[in-house]
Computed example of a mutant assay.
Amino acid sequence: MNTAFSHISERMNNRRFAVAQNAHGLSDVSTVFHYHVEDHAITGTYQGGHIHQGHLVGRATGPDTIELLYQCITTEGELLAGWSRGTVGVDHAGRTTLAFVWGWLSGATGGGESSYVELDP
């Protein structure tokens, strides 16, 4: 079924992503994000590096845009929560890319921009 959010589902559902750039965040090249998409709803988990365990929930807001809320516990035992708004794209090699503007809601202050690239299956 082709919906307004089909592109996001095709590009993100049951796919894993790693950090390409995240100068001001906790996730790094060893953090893996695993997304699931059903209709416009997005869920996922992430862990690795400074992140012991993280969970996220969000929604598609347009044909290639998403917004997420995330929470995690760090390897140092900190409990953090934040928000992000992003764009789903494709790089020159055909891999899905994610680009976000994000900020902390609880446990830390500040925010930044980050980008992610799909890992090979």
Rank of each mutant, 00 (worst) to 15 (best):
M1C: 08
M1A: 13
N2P: 12
N2L: 09
T3I: 10
A4T: 14
F5P: 00
S6V: 11
S6W: 07
H7T: 14
H7L: 10
H7P: 12
S9I: 02
E10H: 06
E10M: 09
R11H: 02
R11Y: 01
M12K: 06
N13S: 10
N13R: 05
N14K: 11
R15M: 03
R15A: 03
R15W: 00
R16Q: 14
A18W: 02
A18H: 06
A20S: 13
A20N: 13
Q21T: 10
N22C: 05
N22W: 05
N22H: 10
N22D: 07
N22I: 00
H24G: 10
L26I: 04
S27P: 02
V29K: 10
T31A: 05
V32G: 04
F33P: 00
H34W: 05
H34Y: 08
Y35V: 01
Y35K: 01
H36S: 07
H36Y: 05
V37Y: 00
V37N: 02
D39T: 08
D39Y: 10
H40I: 12
H40P: 01
T45L: 03
T45V: 06
Y46M: 07
Q47W: 01
G48S: 06
G48E: 02
G49N: 03
G49L: 00
H50R: 14
H50Q: 14
I51F: 01
I51Y: 01
Q53L: 14
G54E: 03
H55Q: 15
H55E: 15
H55I: 12
L56H: 04
L56I: 06
V57H: 09
G58R: 02
R59C: 12
R59S: 14
A60R: 02
T61R: 06
T61A: 11
G62M: 04
P63L: 05
P63W: 07
P63V: 09
T65L: 07
I66V: 13
I66R: 04
L69T: 15
Q71R: 13
Q71S: 15
I73P: 05
T74G: 12
T75D: 12
T75C: 11
E76Q: 12
G77C: 11
E78F: 09
E78H: 11
L80H: 07
A81V: 10
W83G: 12
W83R: 12
R85W: 08
R85S: 13
G86P: 01
T87F: 07
V88M: 07
G94T: 09
G94F: 07
G94M: 11
R95W: 07
T97F: 03
L98M: 06
L98A: 06
L98V: 09
A99W: 03
A99M: 04
A99K: 09
V101H: 13
G103W: 09
G103V: 08
G103L: 10
G103N: 13
W104A: 01
W104Q: 02
L105S: 15
L105G: 14
T109Y: 08
G110D: 08
G111F: 02
S114D: 14
S115P: 07
S115F: 08
Y116W: 14
Y116K: 11
V117F: 06
L119H: 11
L119D: 15
L119G: 14
D120C: 10
D120Y: 09
